[in-house]
Structures are given as structure tokens and as C-alpha cells.
């Protein structure tokens, strides 16, 4: 049964070590923060793999075409990594860099989402067309 206890415990240990390290060696503290964040995300990845498997089985059963789901997964992956990078930069005191990473992430997500929106609009227009025709 997945439990939050090891993850929270790990985060607390990392926080304490970071508190010790930050005033003495800020650059090593930043690297340690990156490693701790990456390890926590790595610990959550198997749960996400289960969710992705569930989504894929539901999509194949529900007749949703695979490329919509692939686009959705890409968007979630980009958001996942963008959040990681932006917060890491912000932690190190580079707020501007973090917001630029977030901007790039939003643009990439938009690029992927546009075909989906167009497909939905086409569907709606076709339905309306049939109705009015």
C-alpha cells in the first residue's frame, strides 16, 4: 500500500541537511535540493505509471483515439518537468529564471494543445452542421 510516510520523512531529512548546508555552501545546497527533489519525483513515478496505464485502458475501451491521449500525456509530462525546473530555479533565488522556464512550458503545452482544440471545434461544427442541415 503506497504510503506518504517515507516521502515526507525523506523531505524532512533533506530539509534539515539543507538548513545546515545553505549558510556555509549555498551552491552545494542548491545541488542537494535538486537531488532531493528529483528523488521524490522518482519515488512517485511508479504510481503515475499505474494511472497512465489506467487511462490508456479506459481510452482504448472508450474508443478515444490514441493520439489525443498521447498529447494529453505529453502535456502532463511537460507540466511535471517544467514545475520541477521552475521551482528548483526559484529555490536557488533565481525567480526570473523560474518564471521564464514556466513561460516556455506554457508555450510548449499550448503548441501541443492547439490540434486538440481544432479537432474539438471541427467536431462541434460538424454536429451543428448536421443539426441545421
Amino acid at each position: 500500500m503506497p504510503s506518504i510516510v517515507p516521502i515526507v520523512g525523506f523531505a524532512l531529512v533533506a530539509t534539515i541537511v539543507l538548513a545546515l548546508l545553505r549558510p556555509l555552501r549555498p551552491e552545494l545546497a542548491v545541488l542537494l535540493g535538486l537531488v532531493a527533489g528529483a528523488l521524490i519525483l522518482l519515488a512517485v513515478i511508479p504510481r503515475i505509471a499505474q494511472i497512465v496505464g489506467l487511462l490508456e485502458s479506459m481510452a482504448s475501451k472508450g474508443g478515444v483515439s490514441a493520439d489525443y491521449l498521447a498529447a494529453l500525456l505529453k502535456i502532463v509530462g511537460i507540466a511535471y518537468l517544467t514545475e520541477f525546473g521552475a521551482q528548483a530555479a526559484r529555490d536557488a533565488g533565481e525567480g526570473a529564471l523560474g518564471s521564464k522556464v514556466e513561460l516556455a512550458g506554457k508555450i510548449l503545452i499550448l503548441v501541443i494543445a492547439i490540434p486538440l482544440v481544432v479537432a474539438v471545434l471541427d467536431l462541434i461544427l460538424r454536429l451543428v452542421g448536421q443539426g441545421a442541415g
Partner: peptide, 14 residues
């Protein structure tokens, strides 16, 4: 560690 994370995410989210 971070490249391991990126690789895992790339394969997971295709």
C-alpha cells in the same frame, strides 16, 4: 540523478 529522472519521465509520458 536528475538525468535519471528526465529519462524516466520521457519514457513514461512518451
Amino acid at each position: 540523478t536528475v538525468s535519471d529522472l528526465f529519462q524516466t519521465v520521457r519514457t513514461l509520458f512518451q
